[in-house]
């Protein structure tokens, strides 16, 4: 296999809060090949968005980011200066955010905002930038693209705005695109359209994508690889097939029981829930973070948690198969 586009080793993010330090993300490892779609899944507050903002260098000043390795195409992001990060952002790696309604500047036309993305990184004329904007608006399925350039964000619907955001992220032809819950704020009918569009574009333009979501249904359809996050840790990573066919970590299995999957969930059967709440991440954290909500918790869960499995499917659990031997796996 060739050198990965993105390689992250032991990423930690600490946020100073009133009563100490919030260890929001702990010891994350993953890598991403060119043209691959990695989906990061997890519930709200699990550190998915922070991880993506850390890659982009967009964490706030007070937030502390440490990593043994964070390489993007051979560039060490942990050592990259502000200027170097700025040159990468929007050019070689770009991001699509969750909130299309508020992510566009209300004071400028979408033409200006699209053109700006290209003008910041390429030595092109204003006209060339506008031509590129029209080309991409057409690509994201916006009709009468040229006439849209003069419109302001408030004149567009949420779905259209998210298409504009996608077009904006693509202006410089990035190698990596990070989509942070790109369809969460949209109507259900639009969600599928936008997602399909995004995935088609990623394939067509041969980009790598990190898709952050809490919607496992979405993941099943588009991801090559899946990383499951819980309370700031990666509890299970692997190919989409491995995760869906042989989920190993109790949390992943719990998540899968929460969504109806064709052929897996019986008609009329109640959907599962995961009882309990996410533990506080302020202060010292030891052992398995999921043990307070886990059906298989034993005394050993308070100790060090081993990494199990192989490189293409790994999970962290004291139990060799993610559950106690003496107990039947819940269906």
């Amino acid at each position: 296999m060739s050198e990965p586009l993105l390689c992250v080793r032991n990423l930690n993010i600490d946020i100073p809060v009133g009563g100490g330090t919030l260890h929001a993300v702990r010891g994350i490892d993953f890598e991403l090949q060119r043209g691959e779609v990695l989906s990061i899944v997890g519930e709200s507050g699990s550190g998915k968005s922070l991880t993506s903002l850390a890659l982009m260098g967009l964490l706030g000043k007070r937030i502390d980011r440490r990593a043994d390795r964070m390489d993007f195409d051979g560039i060490d992001l942990t050592r990259a200066g502000k200027r170097q990060m700025r040159a990468l952002r929007g050019d070689r790696m770009s991001m699509i955010f969750q909130e299309p309604m508020t992510s566009l500047n209300p004071a400028y036309t979408i033409g200006d905002q699209l053109a700006e993305a290209l003008l910041l990184h390429r030595n092109v004329s204003r006209q060339q930038a506008r031509d590129r904007a029209v080309e991409l608006l057409e690509k994201v399925g916006i009709t009468a693209a040229a006439s849209r350039l003069g419109q302001y964000p408030h004149q567009l619907s949420g779905g259209l705005r998210q298409r504009v955001m996608i077009a904006m992220a693509l202006m410089c032809g990035p190698e990596l695109i990070i989509a942070d819950e790109p369809t969460t704020a949209l109507d259900v009918t639009i969600q599928a359209q936008i997602l399909r569009l995004l995935v088609d574009l990623v394939r067509e333009m041969d980009m790598a994508m990190i898709l952050i979501t809490h919607d496992l249904g979405v993941v099943a359809r588009v991801a090559d690889k899946v990383a499951v996050m819980y309370a700031g840790e990666l509890v299970e990573t692997g190919s989409a097939g491995a995760i869906f066919n042989a989920p190993s970590h109790p949390y992943t299995r719990g998540l899968l029981r929460c969504i109806p999957l064709p052929g897996r969930t019986a008609r009329g059967a109640p959907l599962g829930t995961i009882p309990g709440i996410v533990p506080s991440l302020v202060g010292e954290i030891g052992g398995c973070v999921f043990r307070t909500r886990c059906d298989h918790a034993v005394a050993a869960c308070h100790g060090a948690i081993p990494h199990r499995g192989e490189a293409d499917h790994m999970f962290r659990c004291v139990h060799p198969h993610g559950h106690r031997e003496d107990e039947e796996t819940p269906a």
Binding site: L58, A87, S94, T102, S103
Partner: peptide, 9 residues
């Protein structure tokens, strides 16, 4: 939208 501007570089 300020985050968007920063994300653009």
């Amino acid at each position: 939208y300020i985050r968007t501007a920063r994300a653009k570089g």
